[in-house]
Design a protein around this nucleic acid. Structure first.
Lengths: 344, 344
DNA sequence: TGTTAGCACTCGGATTAAATGAGTGCTAAC
DNA sequence: GTTAGCACTCATTTAATCCGAGTGCTAACA
């Protein structure tokens, strides 16, 4: 058996209705809901077929039908296809340039959560492949140096380096010149072992320090994989949806939101999956994070200049308003792009 | 009517029993629970008195009694008095020196939450009154300077300063010397307007920059009041306690945990209240944060070297195991102190 | 005067039973 | 292929009932 146009229409009606109400939907409802002008009996026949095909299911005998993951998937896919061309004009979110990246990200998450009534997360742009803009080594006191490293996108890292021997001003100056001239403008992938060996050689007796500095640089450029910074907002929104609000489930979801590294697998998956910059939808079990398998996740990849990519995500019940969420995310992606242009 | 020794013992028994079970406790239970050897009838009489005094209350007629906020308060106060001298030996929490302050704090919160089965929060040490250890201005490119400020306790702040005119190396060097010699070793309270005016005067045409740097320094030393950094862990633990786990309450508590600035009033209150370094208990409505008025909060102030004080807190149901929590916090405070000594 | 046994009474929560009604599958007629 | 009709199912709602923990009060006791 194949799914035909009419079945598709009925499926869509079922999904839409279920998104609204959260209640299983019956044949009579659908027969009034659609413009098909079919009796409930006919709908019932079609629904039986749809069930056999696995797109919908019955929570129990004599209840209406709800969409299965597969049903949601089909719905989302066709909806996304329709949205493909559509240039989206959403209301301006008033994103202004803010000095601090983290404050901005927190704000974005908050706006998104408020706007959609779902939970929102955003990952700080990973600076993978980013280029070194500025390096400086300074002496704080006898045994402490501080390394300041700035990479493209004005992200700054500091590392404290402990040294045994006192370094005089001249040596430090030399090291600084050396570091900047050899590493400035390079990205992590361009800094290879040969170069490091060369640097160490040049540094002579100070090769330990160079090695520490290089580590710091590497750290700054690649951004530690594990502690991808993730900001969240609106976790409390899950309590709006009874199907997520029972203790067991809520507890798991809240935990995922608090121990943010659980979400990082989601971010990673999104970043690798997205060819350039797509919107992705994970429905229920499809999600890489097992503790939120009763939720759906809609993610978007944003790009702040070359190479600086991050992920925005909306997490809500499976019956989330995919259409609205996709719109919101698209609008936001757009704005983040603009923001970067203005920033430069 | 006054509360006498026997009433006190009965109140303690009621509180303890309620902490364990979470159920209202009746006279019969208490008559067996205590070593007073009194019949339930006698206990009933005493309980009627305790109720009249406001230490306990009945959720409804023909239910047992539960402690009122006032009852908890009395219980906690007497318990704390007993603990006053007691030097506490708790199991080592394996706190090791970690390079990054924030990672350490997150870990402490996590340990605490796991250890107690309540929710935990910790605020980063506020650097109030801290002294400037090192200031450096460097040129990143034509129009960008970066100011690196390190204060005691190795906390580093970076500020990017935009300038219109190009500053040559010599000027920057001069500014650096000037800044370090005039501000080094001073705390915010010691940097006054006269000094700033003097600095600006010295800087001549570059007074704008000085002004920016001073701002950055002020920022670094005092740490912005609003964004006290707060780390939390174990929010999901609230679901262990049915009296907190209903949608409405859980939602509010979770929100407070996510929008951490709500907790900052708690931190501030704690820091100002604590003469030197006490443990404080806020029961129910006593808490400065209204959204967690169904919880109790136990806070401790820790000190990492002079002037760097932060707050650790445990948030749980009113029937929390105050004794254990106070012990845990005391142990942790102790360890944080040690940590600092080792760090230096 | 303080303590205790006994008893009637209260009331929330659990248990059970019945009623309700939304929704289904199937059949037969159009 | 569509539809009306009907018997059947079953989660949910409502009402009725029971149960028992716990109380307050009184009278007797030490």
């Amino acid at each position: 058996m194949e799914i035909d146009a009419r079945k598709m229409k009925i499926l869509q009606a079922i999904v839409r209705n279920y998104l609204e109400t959260g209640e299983p939907v019956g044949s009579r409802t659908i027969s009034k809901y659609t413009d098909l002008n079919l009796s409930s009996a006919t709908i019932r026949n079609e629904m039986a077929d749809l069930e056999e095909l696995g797109y919908i299911l019955q929570p129990h005998t004599s209840a209406g039908r709800i969409p299965s993951d597969k049903g949601y998937r089909l719905y989302v896919d066709t909806m996304m296809a329709e949205k493909e061309q559509e240039v989206n004009e959403m209301k301006e979110l008033l994103l202004e340039k803010e000095e601090k990246m983290d404050a901005m990200l927190k704000r974005v998450a908050k706006i998104l959560a408020n706007d959609t009534n779902y939970a929102a997360m955003i990952s700080a742009p990973a600076v993978q492949g980013n280029k070194v803009k500025f390096i400086q080594l300074s002496r704080v006191d006898k045994h402490q140096l501080i390394a300041v490293i700035m990479v493209e996108g004005n992200i700054i890292k500091n590392n404290i380096i402990h040294v045994n021997d006192y370094l005089d001003d001249e040596t430090i100056l030399k090291l600084n010149i050396m570091l900047n001239s050899s590493l400035g403008g390079l990205s992590i992938s361009e800094i290879n072992l040969a170069m490091i060996a060369q640097l160490k050689h040049q540094a002579g007796v100070h090769e330990d320090i160079i090695s520490d500095v290089i580590d710091a640089v590497a750290d700054a450029i690649k951004g530690n994989d594990e502690d991808l910074e993730i900001y969240t907002s609106g976790a409390k929104n899950i309590f709006r949806y009874p199907e997520l609000a029972d203790n067991q489930k809520a507890s798991e979801i809240i935990d995922a939101f608090e121990e943010k590294q659980m979400l990082s697998s989601l971010v990673k998956e999104t970043l690798t999956n997205s060819e350039s910059r797509g919107i992705q939808v994970y429905i229920g079990e499809e999600s890489p994070v097992s503790t939120i398998k009763d939720c759906s996740v809609v993610t978007a990849t944003y790009e702040l200049g070359e190479g600086m990519r991050g992920t925005i995500g909306i997490i809500g019940p499976k019956r989330m308003d995919y259409e609205k969420v996709v719109d919101s995310l698209k609008g936001l992606m757009h704005q983040l792009d603009n923001l970067y242009d203005k920033n430069e």
